[in-house]
Amino acid sequence: MANIQKLDPCASPLDYYGSELRRLREANSLKQGQLGDIIFCTGSLIGQIETTKKVPTRDFSERVDAALGTDGVFSRLIGLVLRSQLPTWFQPYAEMESRAAYISTYQAQLVYGLLQTGDYARALLGVEHPGKVDEVLAGRMERQRILARENPPALWVILSEAALLQEVGGRDVMRAQLARLLDFRDDPWVQIQVLPFSVGQHTGMMGSFTLLRFDDDPDLFYMENYDHGHMTANPQLIKERSVGYARLQATALSPEDSATLIARVMEERYEEQS
């Protein structure tokens, strides 16, 4: 007799997803292999997702909804599942980020997460999460969906020149990442500025930080250290950082000149190898 693993749907969003997948599959009188045949995957993968050994994807969820006639249950649930794969200390920020109407961020060393390519993000996450890169990467890519929604937040990103020069994942990965930044030149909701080394001392030298503004809630200030984040609605701190950010905007290259610099670095530093 097969040893059926018991599931606790209250343990986590992933456990709930797995238990619902098993329950609704069985309600349709389908074995794992049969459902796998319908949605073009293996029965083994179905079993691994049901027992939380694998994290489902959005494409998988959509195919399951279609196969089981679940009216979008799994397509709605997958966002919560993928967000739960982010580091626990980061999840509160990701939740607030997804609700923000306006995001302004200064990044001292790396490309902001909402603008990262999958390969760039994978290289970064492989350093801190070598055992679960796919899961954490899925959570990071899920964050980026807010830029594609009907009413996206306004996003203003100031990148230190260091973010263009710090090689992550190799030359090809960096070239693709800088090309990705250039893709936003015609996006009315995304503005990217580069803060060149030549400006000298500036108001962002204590590190990366982000300001979130909302339609109906107080503004938030966020910054993070090695393994934890700090988020506050302290009005005085937000006032000081907002002024500091305005100074960074005034000091940085214009969006047009920033795109020119990004393109030049992409060609000169990360040119394609013959």
Rank of each mutant, 00 (worst) to 15 (best):
A2N: 09
Y16D: 13
G18Y: 04
L21V: 04
R22D: 15
E26W: 05
S29M: 12
K31S: 10
G43L: 08
Q48L: 05
I49V: 09
T51M: 00
T57K: 06
A67S: 12
G69I: 02
T70A: 01
T70R: 02
T70Y: 04
D71E: 15
S75Y: 03
G79Y: 12
L82D: 04
L82C: 07
L82S: 01
R83Y: 07
Q85P: 01
T88W: 12
T88Q: 15
P92A: 12
A94N: 14
M96Q: 14
R99V: 12
A101G: 14
S104P: 02
S104R: 15
Q107R: 03
A121I: 07
R122L: 03
A123L: 04
L124D: 01
G131K: 10
L147V: 08
N151L: 13
N151D: 15
A162F: 03
A162C: 01
Q166K: 10
Q166A: 07
V168S: 00
D172K: 08
M174S: 10
R175V: 07
A179G: 15
L182D: 04
D186V: 03
P188T: 04
F197A: 07
S198K: 09
G200V: 10
G204P: 09
S208P: 05
F221M: 11
N234I: 11
E240I: 15
R241K: 15
R241G: 03
S242D: 14
R247Y: 13
T251K: 07
A263G: 14
R264Q: 15
E272H: 09
